[in-house]
Design a protein around this nucleic acid. Structure first.
Lengths: 137, 137
DNA sequence: TCTATATCTCTAGTCACTAGAGCATATGTA
DNA sequence: TACATATGCTCTAGTGACTAGAGATATAGA
């Protein structure tokens, strides 16, 4: 049996976050010791690892809840699970594209600041004048 | 003189958000009409545009507050402003790198799901078994 | 047994908004 | 001028995914 601290060390999920996941019903309320402390099984460790991994990948709590739900219905087609992951992939790709455009503009903004006076500051100037952007947003 | 709705239409910042910025002291409390409605000047429109642009670039409210503060002290060197923008550039670049690693893993996860049964579902399986990751995280 | 560490519950705070209730004001047309 | 509609006001509370802190209790090792 594992304490909440053991779970935390093994998965890298912080203790308050584990309790938060329990509250959000991502994990079941575990057994308790005589003194009311949480005691987890190996299966619960695995589920927390699953959640951690999915969160690291940026999946929302809601998406993870769906995946867990799916995995407990072994008769279900996995098309649904694939859909969740695929949608998230598209989301990640869109975010990369957007950030790359921002990177371009930030590079442009920061590469020109050489004067000593704020009146000529290209950073401030560029941020004020949207028309300087090359249709970035 | 512009109403809050005019400001919103011209900058693309939603009305409650404008009021929120006022509360956060990013913009000064504007004049009011006889009936207590906000009335803005051109200068205030420009400042809101500045804030919008900076937010679109992902700068935090706190960073924007600093930039505004800097821009009202015309004697200051702009090195500080450049530092804020550069730091943010580094942040954006780090995020791009991280998202690209996630993209790789998500692609791998979603490209193999072909079986009809959840027991064989690669998505669920891959998310459960961290060791399948190629040291992505 | 003592002490240090771990855990408990509960509340509130974070960021950057967003939503809604319940009014008051402004604007345009008849 | 009367009215309808649109716009605005303040205030409170909610979002997601945690994080922090208070104050009490439990457990493990010397």
């Amino acid at each position: 049996m594992l304490s909440i601290g053991d779970m935390s060390r093994r998965t890298g999920v912080k203790i308050p976050t584990i309790r938060y996941y329990e509250q959000m019903k991502l994990i079941d309320a575990p057994e308790r010791s005589e003194g009311n402390q949480r005691r987890y099984s190996k299966a619960e460790l695995e589920r927390l690892g699953f959640i951690k991994h999915a969160r690291d990948l940026g999946l929302t709590i809601e998406a993870i809840r769906k995946l867990i739900d799916l995995s407990t219905r072994p008769d279900m087609s996995c098309a649904e699970a694939d859909k969740i992951a695929s949608e998230h992939l598209a989301f990640v790709q869109a975010r990369i594209a957007k950030l790359k455009r921002l990177e371009t503009e930030l590079k442009r903004i920061t590469s020109c600041c050489s004067s000593g006076n704020i009146d000529d500051c290209y950073v401030i100037h560029a941020l004020s004048d949207h028309s300087l952007c090359e249709d970035v947003h």
